[in-house]
């Protein structure tokens, strides 16, 4: 763990991901600009309420971790942010979710547009049964980019950003299913990066990975937050403590506490948070 923190420090000092001038400008507006503003979000699966009155702001270019015992609604909440939760037909919501000041449920913001801005990495690595190249080029292609030269650049850049280019540059035409689980997950991250989203939602991205792959993904998250805002759901409290700037604790569909990560882990306001992080339940 300490090793990782060392790494984290060193990578913070020497950035190797360049930020486009436009993005740099956006970032200069202030460190605490939020990408998501959620107000009084309620969500039901049929007649079962899964989320109660969630209000929460998610800051730009930071890592926001969401923790809580299984079934607490943390994944549901994450999937509400890019409307993936609607894959379940019986879902109903109330309240507002604003992405960059736009209500995501208003018609003007199509769900396809929202998802190009708010990418997602899933719990189990889920590459398509296609080549590495086709996996990463999937998003750009779906959105109409067909020129091979541009796609080549996007694939290379995305794989580099996902820190897997060196491993895979000679295996771009191999089926993604032939890769190891950790490599598959980083290809999935590269796939999400390929459309250059603003936000990346990660749903327990390391839960199916071995410790070494987990470490690589955690390091990657540290790098990525310079360019992207990241929301990560994890059942692993140490992971949240290691990699996040802010942490939200969910319990039974309610947001119990949301604070700076150090504060939440060292000096939680709520008794239930303390019980959870000290391992008294969950």
């Amino acid at each position: 763990m300490s090793k990782l923190q060392e790494k984290r420090k060193s990578s913070e000092s020497g950035s190797n991901i360049k930020v486009s001038p436009a993005r740099q400008q956006e970032m200069n507006k202030g460190p605490m600009k939020s990408v998501f503003e959620v107000e009084n979000l309620n969500l039901w699966y049929g007649s079962n309420q899964a989320l109660y009155e969630i209000s929460m702001q998610i800051p730009q270019n930071q890592v926001t971790a969401i923790i809580g015992p299984s079934g607490c609604g943390k994944s549901t909440y994450l999937k509400a942010l890019n409307r993936m939760v609607e894959m379940v037909p019986s879902v109903k919501t109330s309240g507002t979710i604003k992405y960059n000041d736009q209500n995501i449920y208003k018609d003007k913001l199509t769900v396809e547009y929202l998802r190009t801005k708010v990418g997602m990495v899933f719990q189990k690595p889920n590459p398509f049964p296609k080549s590495v190249y086709d996996n990463v080029a999937y998003g750009p292609r779906v959105h109409g980019i067909k020129k091979r030269a541009i796609l080549d650049q996007i694939v290379e850049k995305s794989l580099k950003d996902a820190a897997i280019w060196d491993e895979l540059k000679d295996r771009l035409n191999e089926n993604a299913y032939s890769l190891s689980g950790g490599q598959q997950q980083r290809v999935c991250i590269a796939r999400a990066l390929a459309v250059e989203p603003d936000v990346i939602l990660m749903d327990e991205p390391t839960s199916a990975l071995d410790p070494i792959s987990t470490l690589k993904v955690e390091e990657l998250v540290q790098e990525l937050k310079k360019k992207y805002s990241i929301v990560i759901v994890t059942h692993n409290m140490q992971q949240a403590a290691r990699i996040s700037d802010n942490t939200a604790f969910f319990l039974n569909g309610e947001l119990i506490e949301y604070a700076d990560t150090n504060k939440l882990f060292q000096n939680p306001d709520d008794k239930r948070t303390e019980d959870y992080i000290t391992g008294r339940f969950g």
Partner: peptide
């Protein structure tokens, strides 16, 4: 010249 994928997507849209 520098390209931005989101701009490209926006053009295609």
């Amino acid at each position: 010249k520098e390209l931005n994928v989101q701009t490209l997507i926006e053009d295609k849209r």
